[in-house]
Design a protein around this nucleic acid. Structure first.
Lengths: 136, 136
DNA sequence: AGCCTACATTGGACATTGTCCAAGTCAAGA
DNA sequence: TCTTGACTTGGACAATGTCCAATGTAGGCT
C-alpha cells in the first residue's frame, strides 16, 4: 500500500490527505466499489472530503494504471484496485458472483484484420457467464 | 422486418406508429445506437414521438428477446438489433460507437477446465476496445 | 522554519441518461 | 362504430458524472 503511494509520489503525484484516504479505501478490497461507495467510505475517515475529489482521484488512479474501471451493468462504474495482474471475469448468471480467471492465449489475436474496420485496437476483455457451484 | 412486427403482434403487442418507427430505426444496423440516438432518428419520421416512448419500446424489445442491450462503458446503453446471430463487439474508447465483429475461434474454448471453478459456463462475450477511424 | 506557488480541493451548478406518473389518445376486437 | 385497456405524452424527478471559480495546501526553496 505505502508502495503504491510511494510510486505515485515519484510520478509527481502530490500526496494529500484526500488522495491517501481514497487509496486506503480501495486497498485490498475483494469487492469493487462504485465512486459513490468509495466516497461514502472515505467520508468515514475524512468527513469533509468532496465527491468531486473522489471522482478526480479515481480518474487519476485509472489514468496512472493503478486501478481498473469496470462497468458490469449500465449503471455506476466500479473500481478494481487489482490492476497489475491481467485477468478476465467469470460471472455467475444467478447470483452475480465474480471470479478472476486467466484464459489461454491472447484475446486480441482472435480478431482478424478484416474485422477491425480501421480501429486502432488496444485491448480485449472477455466475460464468461455461467452458473456457479453454489447456484447449481 | 415486417417479420419482426408480425411476430410481435402475435405475442399480443399492440402495433402503434411509434413502435413501428422504433423498430424501423433499429432494423439492419451494424452500428448500435443509444436510446437517445434511436429517439433522434425516430423523430425524423414521427416528429412528436416522446423520449419515454422510445425508452419503453426498447425495454420491451429487450424483454421479448428481439434486441440486445449492450453496456460497454459507464455511459449510455446501446441497443443491438442483431440478437439472433452470435457476434462480439468492437467499441471506440473515445466516442463509444459499437460495431459487430466476428472473431476467429470459439471464445468459450479459451478457458481451461482448471480455470472454470465448477461453473457451468454457457457464454463468453468479448469486447475489443480501440479508437475508431473517425476519432483518430 | 517560513514563504511561495503551482497544484489540489471544495461545493454547487450543470449535463447526461434513465425512470415514473397522471392525463390524454388510440388500436383492435366485439 | 364503439369501447376499453393498453399506449403515449410531457414533465418532474433520480442517479451518476463533469465543470468551474474560489479557496486551501504540499513540497520545494531560501
Amino acid at each position: 500500500m505505502s508502495d503504491l503511494l510511494e510510486r505515485l509520489r515519484e510520478q509527481g503525484w502530490r500526496l494529500t490527505a484526500q488522495r491517501r484516504v481514497v487509496a486506503e479505501v480501495l486497498n485490498g478490497q475483494h469487492v469493487h466499489y462504485t465512486a459513490d461507495e468509495v466516497h461514502a467510505r472515505a467520508v468515514e475517515r475524512l468527513p469533509e472530503i468532496a465527491r468531486a475529489t473522489v471522482y478526480n482521484t479515481l480518474s487519476e488512479l485509472v489514468a496512472l494504471g493503478e486501478v481498473l474501471e469496470v462497468s458490469t451493468d449500465g449503471r455506476a462504474k466500479r473500481y478494481d484496485p487489482n490492476a497489475h495482474h491481467s485477468h478476465q471475469h467469470l460471472v455467475c448468471s444467478r447470483c452475480g458472483t465474480i471470479r478472476d480467471v486467466h484464459p489461454l492465449g491472447d484475446p486480441l489475436a482472435t480478431l482478424p484484420e478484416s474485422e477491425r474496420f480501421g480501429f486502432a485496437i488496444s485491448e480485449a476483455t472477455v466475460t464468461y457467464r455461467g452458473v456457479c457451484p453454489n447456484c447449481t
